[in-house]
Simulated assay, not measured.
Amino acid sequence: MTQSTLKLVVTDQAFGNTRHEQAAAQAEAADFAEYQCRSEEETRSAVQGAHVVLNNFAPLTRRVLEVMAPGAVVIRYGVGVDNVDLIAAKDLGVRVCNVPDYGIDEVADHATAMTLALVRKLNRYDAGIREGEWKIDRMVDGVRSLRETTVGLIGLGRIARSYATRMAVFGCRITGYDPFVNDDAARAAGVEPMSRDEVIASADVLSLHVPLTPDTRHLIDADALTRMPAGSIIINCSRGGLVDETALSDALRHGHLSGAGLDVFEQEPLPADSPLRHSFSVLMSPHAAFFSNASVEKLQQLASEEALRGLRGETLRCRLV
């Protein structure tokens, strides 16, 4: 393979520019192309013969992966790779990488901000004032002190631990479950280890920090929501498919949950007919928890550096498959 045959493709991006990516291609005299693919067919056409592919949300199915160059490298902008068929990638010899070490503080900040707003019921005060109300008891039915709040974590990775540190400052009790983290490591992070069921059943605030896999899809379903304490809150800045949105809407409508902070959804953009749009108990953002000027710059830089290693045939930094 000669350098002149190399091809680097960006399937889709939401950053506004691809200067780092273009610089990586230029450094190896590779052809460069960028798209805003949404469908499988658009993506399949875009990556035909590509040696390195940078991907955001476009679907990388078996049909897409099989038209890439032999030994191609896929780099996902971000941590999760649930839009990539990893089994097919392994079968086809396509190497898949992610960027796990950017935006950690941003996501932890975002989850914390959502938690504080919902525990303090700022959304309800705001809505009440806009409707002409002023009396507290007509806007809220009580507010739990943060110092009397148990925050439960499902998953104890870097973002979860950063979020735990922030919430501990407010005097919250922090519990958590992660089958891949031993009890001593959890305690060292300021987290009281528990079983998953115990975390769910005792959390006034339940925050999710796990990848979306067949085993974690709808991890929080109707049964799990029923087992959460009355008046509790759920925070999801990880992956939308972790929560059964129909069950969540029902729990909010019936008042079992007092609120939900959602940065991610099962379908994005959130469908116009989603009942979540009409619940004043839901605080939503458009998959933006990672976003800051600094984090976006770092994400593109790290992804492009990995792309350059892929073009050069060097050892990949964050290979998953």
Rank of each mutant, 00 (worst) to 15 (best):
E148M: 05
D197P: 00
S162L: 00
A185F: 01
R120T: 04
E106M: 01
A113Y: 08
C97K: 12
C97I: 01
L86E: 08
D85K: 03
K90H: 15
R166N: 03
R161S: 00
R147L: 07
S202L: 09
A164M: 06
D197N: 12
D184I: 12
L92W: 07
F180K: 14
S162C: 06
S202D: 14
Y77S: 11
D109L: 03
R161T: 10
D183Y: 00
R158P: 00
V205L: 11
A88C: 09
Y102E: 14
D109H: 13
R166L: 02
A164P: 12
K135C: 01
A164V: 03
G142V: 04
N182M: 01
Y125E: 07
D82P: 08
V143E: 10
R120W: 02
A186E: 09
V181P: 10
D204V: 00
I129P: 04
A186Q: 10
A113I: 07
A188I: 06
K121D: 13
A160Q: 04
G171C: 04
A186L: 05
R158M: 11
H110Y: 13
T115F: 04
V199R: 02
A168W: 04
G128A: 01
T175N: 05
L206M: 09
Y102S: 13
R124Q: 14
G190N: 07
R187C: 02
M167G: 03
R196Y: 00
V181F: 08
L92D: 12
A201R: 09
G93Q: 08
A113T: 13
K90E: 15
W134A: 07
V107L: 06
A168F: 01
R196K: 14
R196D: 02
D184W: 00
R147S: 13
I129N: 00
R130Y: 07
L206G: 09
M139Q: 15
A113E: 15
D197Y: 00
N182T: 12
M114A: 12
Y77L: 13
D126P: 00
S195D: 08
I200M: 05
P179H: 07
R138V: 00
G142A: 05
Y125T: 06
L86P: 10
R158A: 12
V181A: 03
I87T: 15
R138K: 11
V143P: 07
V169A: 15
M114H: 12
R147N: 11
T165G: 15
G176N: 05
S202A: 15
V119N: 13
D183A: 15
G80W: 05
D178M: 01
D178E: 11
K121E: 14
S145T: 02
G152T: 04
R161M: 02
P179D: 05
V119E: 03
T115Q: 06
Y77N: 11
N98H: 11
F170Y: 11
V151W: 04
V199T: 05
